[in-house]
Design a binder for these strands. Structure first.
Lengths: 135, 135
DNA sequence: CTGGGTGCAAAGTATTTGCATGAAC
DNA sequence: GTTCATGCAAATACTTTGCACCCAG
């Protein structure tokens, strides 16, 4: 039993070939739009349906196997669930990078000011990646 | 010439009655979905078209008169442009609160780690508002 | 076996576009 | 007067659903 099979089962998901490939694609590419994922999946399953992609993305989100990342001015991308992290995106080439930042201070302060009980912080930083700065 | 007229013109937008009402609605309600905005607009303009809403929302975003706020698991909301701020959202009742947080340290650190030139930080904190915590 | 996943087609929802008319400046 | 906004209808894009068949466990 391979890794992805185990990972899927831990999230109460049957390990079908299609799902294994979604897991693999997201693992290799880091962040993918639905569109891009469909494109990649078509190479392995020439008759896969977009409906299958959507159904799987949805159930995988429900079961916390993957996460949706909403990005300003761009389509959402999806990534395998992992340790909490933030995202840096390039507004020119759309590159996306994961970044570990300690937001506990900020979150705590926000909690005091707003009187909310906060349990999640989604931060997306936008700018220019190293390459695009040079152009 | 009223305030909204001036504000619209500063953003190179003609001040039509429909646009003035969009500005007013967003100003009064703080954050609105397309759907909610359409609903409110219908009360003042019984034959307004959804297309008009979309066209205006889009051009207002292009001209930085308003901003889109993308929220995890929810529809996007729109707000008048103002000083940079973060958002706290209640996962139970969907309330949204603006909050001023200093993210300069975080942004600077992110910049060093990622080698990106960062010019924007979008932070959405999710949790329970004061009321929903008590239920 | 049995429950649930797949692909297909169709339906549903969301958003954009083209065009004739009308209003802002 | 000229430019651009509006409303309507149609087109396009995006996402979900129903169903017959098939596969993972």
């Amino acid at each position: 039993m391979n890794n992805y099979t185990r990972m899927l089962r831990e999230h109460h998901l049957k390990a079908t070939p299609q799902r294994l490939e979604i897991a693999n694609a997201l693992d290799c590419n880091g962040h993918m739009t639905i569109e891009k994922l469909y494109e990649v999946m078509l190479q392995k399953f020439n008759s896969i349906s977009l409906a299958t992609i959507y159904k799987n993305i949805n159930i995988m989100i429900e079961n916390a196997f993957i996460q949706e990342v909403k990005i300003p001015n761009e389509k959402s991308v999806y990534e395998l669930s992992k340790e909490r992290h933030s995202h840096v995106v390039c507004t020119k080439c759309n590159a996306i990078k994961d970044i570990m930042l300690d937001l506990s201070q900020t979150t705590q302060l926000a909690s005091q000011v707003s009187h909310f009980k906060i349990d999640k912080a989604d931060l997306v930083l936008s700018g220019l990646c190293q390459k695009c700065q040079q152009l």
